[in-house]
Design a protein around this nucleic acid. Sequence first.
DNA 1: TATAATTGTTAGCCGTGTCTAACAATTATG
DNA 2: CATAATTGTTAGACACGGCTAACAATTATA
Lengths: 165, 165
Amino acid sequence: MVKQEAQREQTASMEDYLEAIANLGEGRKVVRVKQISEMLGVKMPSVTSALKKLSERELVEHERYGHIKLTPEGDKVARDVIRRHKALTRFFAQALGINKETAEEDACKIEHVISSLSMERLVKFVEFIEACPLGSANFPSRYEYYLEHGELPRDCSKRSVRKRK
Amino acid sequence: MVKQEAQREQTASMEDYLEAIANLGEGRKVVRVKQISEMLGVKMPSVTSALKKLSERELVEHERYGHIKLTPEGDKVARDVIRRHKALTRFFAQALGINKETAEEDACKIEHVISSLSMERLVKFVEFIEACPLGSANFPSRYEYYLEHGELPRDCSKRSVRKRK
DNA sequence: TATAATTGTTAGCCGTGTCTAACAATTATG
DNA sequence: CATAATTGTTAGACACGGCTAACAATTATA
């Protein structure tokens, strides 16, 4: 309940814009206001005003009618959001068995609010599930072992897999 | 990324107020504006204006300088938020091993944005972890079994526990 | 290349949810 | 019970992040 958190630098909205720009710009592609607006489901003027704010914050380079590009700092922030996004999607999809669609949607929301501590744990959890996928007796203990030692317990190899179904 | 979600009825802020009122009102205790404001870390005028809006939406009964009480509808919403809150806290604390403090903080944020599908899965996941806590070989398969049948597989009983540590 | 289509920007509005300052009601206490 | 302390409300401001309408620049095409 209590609101006393040590705030993130960026708002959720700003993170969304940075993430979108990073994704659209993959492979040196030119990024357009229109594309951003479609990707985020907002109108173009909203994008323009967001870009203005992000420029002021030196997270984005943008000149009127011109190119849109993340600054190194903006790129750093975007990469971090994307990292959280991917980890959360994997968690919902792989670990919980949620459909990709919903997993993506939830990741989009949660990526802006989750603490870094929980984020790191979730990443480790998914890594554990994926690395030690089937023949893993005694799950929580093994997970604790993994958290503590950073590697899988000896008897967690894929060799001991027994397929079901 | 894409914003096309079918919105919740209430805003995150409204849910916070309802949750706070429900928690403060436990056991017929009188709820005060001051308490709500302290619990949520906002000033009293913010509470007053939130109560006004919640009254209009018929989620709260409130008269000037008078009592504050959830309507049946408001109570229903509050219970649901609290249910999500508790499940998330359990997930972070029990399943991921996060400290209670951080688990609470993250639950507070995520309870407002997670889809009901993911929420239900998370609840089941925690139930599974707690019910099938130690001697559980073949974790993901057993989890799938649990999801599919709604009950633990035969060989998941607490009888087969081997304590570690 | 002139004009049409598209894309982008500006201006200004709105709802949400905070805040402070000033005032009002209630409650406690000398 | 009068007054001080506390609690609650109102009024008005502000930041955020959307939106529409109108206009400007760019790009495509007849």
